[in-house]
């Protein structure tokens, strides 16, 4: 059982390296029932997608 603080820390870590299985499972359990952390996941996803789109755009566009 994670707190939101612990879950957010793991979500940030997960952006840059693979989490151990136990931590990943605990995170999945928490996010499934936590609306605020689901929002945080969406924000991280959007930032990742936007950065990728910006990079692609900069390499090919004017």
């Amino acid at each position: 059982t994670l707190t939101c603080r612990e879950a957010a820390r793991l979500l940030l870590e997960d952006e840059d390296h693979e989490l151990p299985t136990a931590e990943r499972l605990a995170l999945q359990v928490h996010v499934k029932i936590c609306f605020a952390c689901q929002r945080f996941v969406s924000q991280l996803n959007l930032m990742r997608r936007a950065t990728r789109a910006w990079r692609k755009h900069s390499e090919t566009a004017d």
Partner: peptide, 26 residues
């Protein structure tokens, strides 16, 4: 990071809804 949370580990203010990612990303 620490400013985002209360002492009990809950969000001080829940993350906001950023809406449709496709609308922003392009």
């Amino acid at each position: 990071f620490d400013d985002l949370f209360q002492a009990d580990g809950h969000w001080r203010e829940a993350p906001r809804d950023w809406g449709d990612p496709d609308a922003a990303c392009c």
